[in-house]
Amino acid sequence: MYFNWEGVMPAVTTKFTDDDTLDLDMFAVNIKAQIDAGVHGLVLGGTLGEASTLTDDEKRVLIETTVGLADGRLPVIINIAEQSTKDAIRAADNADKYGADGLMMLPPMRYKSTDYETVTYFETVAKSTDLPIMIYNNPVDYKIEVTLDMLDQLLKLDNIQAVKESTRNVSNVTRIKNKFKNRLKVLCGVDTLALESILMGADGWVAGLVCAFPRETVAIYELAKAGRIDEAIRIYRWFLPLLELDINPQLVQNIKLAEVATGIGTENVRAPRLPLQGPERERVLEIIEQGVKTRPDLPDYKSL
Rank of each mutant, 00 (worst) to 15 (best):
I288S: 04
G46E: 02
A88H: 03
E259L: 08
V119D: 03
L276V: 11
V67N: 05
A28P: 03
I229C: 06
P214M: 11
G41K: 00
L298S: 01
V269S: 01
E64R: 15
D18C: 04
G227P: 10
G99A: 04
E222I: 06
Y236G: 00
S52K: 10
T114Q: 01
A81Y: 13
V210Y: 08
A261D: 02
V61I: 11
N138W: 01
E58A: 07
A212V: 04
M200H: 13
G204P: 05
L304K: 06
T65Y: 13
V39D: 01
D93E: 14
K177I: 07
T167F: 09
K127E: 15
Q161Y: 07
L240Y: 09
T120R: 14
D23T: 05
K143A: 10
D71Q: 07
A212S: 15
K15M: 15
I220T: 07
R295Y: 05
L69I: 00
P132G: 02
I63K: 05
P296F: 02
D96K: 15
I229P: 00
D300I: 09
T47G: 09
G38F: 09
T266Y: 01
K293I: 10
T192E: 12
Y221T: 13
K185E: 10
I135N: 01
K177T: 07
V163F: 06
E222R: 14
R215V: 08
N79A: 15
K177V: 05
G46P: 00
L245F: 01
P275N: 04
P299K: 07
Y221C: 08
P132F: 04
D158C: 07
G41S: 11
